[in-house]
Amino acid sequence: MARDRRILDAAAVAFHEKGFHGVGMDELGSRAGLSGPSLYRYFSGKDEILAKLLDEAMDELLTATEPTDPDPRGDLERALRHHVDFALVNRPLVALYQREVRSLADPWAAPFAVRRKEYTKAWERLVSRARPALDEATIGAVTQGCLGLVFSVPGWPERTLAVPRAADAIVDLVLHGLVGVDSAP
């Protein structure tokens, strides 16, 4: 495994366990099997490591919001399933995002904020295509509700997520919620 990947993987776990501000470069180096000072050959510091982790996650999630299915509801379900699977497999990274996105420093904070807006807009387009009768404000609220549920997964108890078909249950819950919005007065 490449050293920069080892550093990023170790940082994701350390930031999840102790928070971004609770971990120093020496500890990150130790967890990655390197000395703290040698990390600076790969990254300028913790801020860049955090930015890289969040950017990698955003790359994958943004790609999954690109329409690929001619059926809008099928496309929404595909993207939703991808996001649920991502949240289940990458629980520490999703929790890191939830807790530490505000810790991003310049020069990484502003570009990441733009990408977050792009991501939300891409989800709103998916919801709008699948539920064209909804007005813009409702689409925004529904989108935030869907994403909020999916990205709350890292805080769920292990026993809840250990059940077979946990991902299916989450996807079904969101999709059934969307159908309920359609029939609301």
Rank of each mutant, 00 (worst) to 15 (best):
G74Q: 04
D106R: 08
E136M: 11
R6H: 09
R99L: 07
R129S: 15
R81H: 01
L39N: 00
R99E: 11
H82S: 07
R125K: 14
N90W: 00
H21F: 00
S38Q: 00
D75C: 06
E124K: 15
T120I: 15
K52R: 13
R116Q: 15
D9I: 05
D26P: 00
M58N: 09
A12Y: 02
R115S: 12
V127D: 14
K18Q: 09
G36F: 00
L61A: 12
V114A: 11
R102W: 05
G22P: 04
S35H: 01
H16I: 02
L134C: 12
E17S: 07
A64W: 10
L8R: 09
M58R: 08
K121S: 15
R81Y: 03
E27N: 02
M58Q: 12
L8H: 07
D26I: 00
A110N: 07
R6C: 08
D85V: 07
M25T: 03
G19N: 01
A12T: 04
A14S: 08
E124A: 14
R6E: 14
A105G: 03
A122E: 11
P37H: 00
A105Y: 00
E48G: 02
T68K: 09
A64M: 11
F112W: 12
A137V: 14
G29L: 00
T138S: 13
L62S: 08
S35T: 01
R131P: 06
A137T: 14
R73V: 05
A87S: 08
R6P: 05
P132Y: 08
A110V: 14
D75Y: 03
D55R: 12
A11M: 05
R129L: 15
G74R: 04
A11P: 06
D9Y: 02
Q98H: 11
A87G: 02
A57I: 13
S44W: 03
R91G: 07
A57W: 10
P67G: 13
A110H: 08
L93Q: 08
F15C: 04
F86Y: 11
L96K: 08
A79W: 07
N90H: 12
L96T: 11
A130N: 07
G33L: 03
R41M: 04
R91Y: 06
D47M: 01
V84G: 06
P92G: 03
V23R: 01
G45Q: 04
D106L: 06
R78C: 06
E56M: 10
A110K: 12
R115K: 13
P92W: 01
L80T: 03
E66A: 14
